[in-house]
Nucleic acid binder design. Sequence first.
DNA 1: TCATTGTGTCCAACGTTTTGGACATTTACA
DNA 2: TGTAAATGTCCAAAACGTTGGACACAATGA
Lengths: 66, 66
Amino acid sequence: MKNKIKTLRKQSNMTQEKLSKLCGVSRQTINCVENDKYDPTLELAFKISRALDKNVEEVFMYDKIS
Amino acid sequence: MKNKIKTLRKQSNMTQEKLSKLCGVSRQTINCVENDKYDPTLELAFKISRALDKNVEEVFMYDKIS
DNA sequence: TCATTGTGTCCAACGTTTTGGACATTTACA
DNA sequence: TGTAAATGTCCAAAACGTTGGACACAATGA
């Protein structure tokens, strides 16, 4: 699983802190998801994507391998 | 969060058991996700969607409320 | 240079997803 | 009608996402 959170977040001039508040989660959570530390919940994936004004599949790329 | 798993699964003539094996998870997991018992992992959401030959957002509907 | 902000990371705790095993109920069909 | 398949559900345990708090380091700009 790959994601474009960092890129899209910077395009929107947002910090991890700001994004985390928009999503209602902690900054560590955003940091970990952004850096592929773990798989987010589907609901969180939706929240992040919406905060970045994108569809889930525009933010997260599923690569069948692992 | 709503989903169309049951409908799409039946359109593909699949049992929960078959879908669970395609996704590499237990049948209970498919059952619970299908009946909104809990939020799946994003990776599982992708696996389910792909098994049903759909995009994530064609299978799962995020309704901002709760 | 210094101060501030943003990011990465650690930890232990907590909550939720996911599990196998088992059983009751419903559905489908001979 | 009866039989098997499919589904719903319970439990306790395991696995994993998420948390606050804290700290180090990098980046930014005055």
